[in-house]
Design a protein around this nucleic acid. Structure first.
Length: 379
RNA sequence: GGGGAAGUCGCAUAGUGGCAAUUGCAACAGACUGUAAAUCUGUCCUCUUCGGAGUUCAGUGGUUCGAGUCCACUCUUCCCCA
């Protein structure tokens, strides 16, 4: 059982971008990396073997809130943790449920103690506290676990944002305390990442980043972005925060984002990302390609017999045509959702591969500037 | 040959005197950022300066201030009896 270690292999000469490797007990993670979201113990519509062999995902997410409600802690403990339960042998990261405190706002009540909420499944009442969220994440057993935080809405005023940030800091102290009093249950190390908050206010972001940095964490997360604020504001906040967070620790930008968001954030020193966009948008028929996004439901793909993406290593991208995928989605065939999800995830992971290569070569900023306009142009 | 039922905007439906007309499907677009999402939204007769305007409910004629709705005939479809 080893602590999380992070080796930085190269810095981009013209920006804050860097290439590294994160070492966990379940394997190494090259950075920058994109982590597919597997909320309820499954990356929706994608098999584990497809994640491993076709997409080559290095790490995937699970969600404390969802897994706690279903299947529940008893089952996960009996299964021997999430790795054993879902058959994923590579690294896992669990979100703390803090985001659900934000996204399920109508069903919850926040106090200093924690957050009471009603289950979206059966309406039953529950309480999350920093302490029990740590306990739950011990049972789930992810390699990286997240502090319990309050993610304030993007349009929050300064007063509310400050209160949410301060609550997040108080909760962090309690998370760390509980984390240090408990042991991993399955023989592998777990790293706790604290989360910077502070909304769109640079003064709060600085305070929060300094507070998080003072805890000497194994890695740091930036939360509360891409929640309604302008994209430029998000980039500004990343710069403010990354100037303060320890440079030798991995930085994880939570819940972001579009391919362009990832590249802009990498340039500003971010190492890790997760987002539902490739999977959710994929299920809804949107494909990310190196020539822009396409809506596979549109009539214009009806008789386009080109491969989905000839440059991709994913089998489905070369084996199937756009016209066939269009047909599958139109006919509501489940295979269509699977192919779209695999394609988009493979695209995101390949984008990260290329980013790492260009950072190592010292060509990142030029490549980024050239490729971003192409990502948003529609065919 | 006789008797009965029915024809509504692609399809299927609602509507029985104030209606450009209900709903579903299909179609055409759009949205989606730490997943209550295989979801949601818009358009869906024509034109529009988005205020409206013009043509519609098988066809023709009629009753009425006003007809998808009532009446007559015609056409078409389905069912039953010969």
């Amino acid at each position: 059982m080893n602590n999380l270690t992070f080796d930085i292999l190269a810095h981009d000469p013209k920006s804050s971008a860097r290439v590294g490797v994160l070492h966990t007990d379940h394997g190494d993670i090259p950075t920058p990396i994109f982590m597919p979201v597997g909320t309820a113990g499954s990356v929706k519509a994608v098999h584990q073997h497809e994640l491993r062999d076709e997409i080559d995902a290095k790490i995937i997410l699970g969600n404390t809130y969802h897994l706690y409600l279903r299947p529940g802690m008893e089952i996960l403990r009996a299964a021997g943790g999430l790795h054993r339960f879902n058959g994923w042998e590579r690294p896992l990261l669990t979100d703390s449920g803090g985001f659900q405190v934000f996204s399920l706002a109508e069903n919850r009540k926040i106090t200093d103690e924690g957050c009471t909420f009603r289950s979206h499944i059966d309406g039953s009442k529950h309480l999350f506290t920093p302490e029990n969220v740590m306990d739950i994440q011990r049972v789930i057993g992810a390699d990286i676990i997240m502090a319990f935080d309050e993610c304030a809405p993007g349009e929050s005023d300064h007063r509310y944002a400050k209160r949410a940030m301060e609550l997040t800091h108080r909760w962090l102290d309690r998370c760390i305390s509980r984390f240090e009093q408990t042991e991993p249950l399955y023989g592998h190390h777990q790293a706790l990442f604290p989360i910077v908050q502070g909304c769109k206010y640079a003064d709060l972001r600085r305070i929060s980043a300094e507070y998080i940095a003072s805890k000497n964490p194994e890695g740091c997360a930036i939360g509360g972005l891409a929640v309604g604020e302008p994209t430029e504001t998000m980039y500004d906040m990343i710069e403010v925060v990354n100037a303060i967070l320890p440079a030798d620790r991995p930085r994880y930008l939570m819940g972001v984002g579009t391919p362009a968001n990832l590249l802009e954030s990498i340039e500003r020193g971010v190492d890790m990302f997760d987002c539902v966009m490739p999977t959710r948008n994929g299920r809804n028929g949107l494909l990310f390609t190196s020539h822009g996004t396409i809506n596979i439901k549109n009539k214009k793909w009806e008789s386009c017999f080109d491969p989905i993406d000839p440059e991709s290593n994913a089998l489905c991208d070369r084996a199937y045509t756009l016209a066939y995928l269009h047909h599958l989605i139109r006919a509501e065939e489940i295979l269509g959702l699977q192919i779209c999800s695999i394609h988009n995830l493979a695209f995101y992971l390949r984008l990260m591969d290329e980013a790492r290569k260009h950072i190592a070569d010292g060509t990142f900023t030029d490549w980024k500037s050239r490729i971003i306009p192409e990502l948003s142009i529609r065919l």
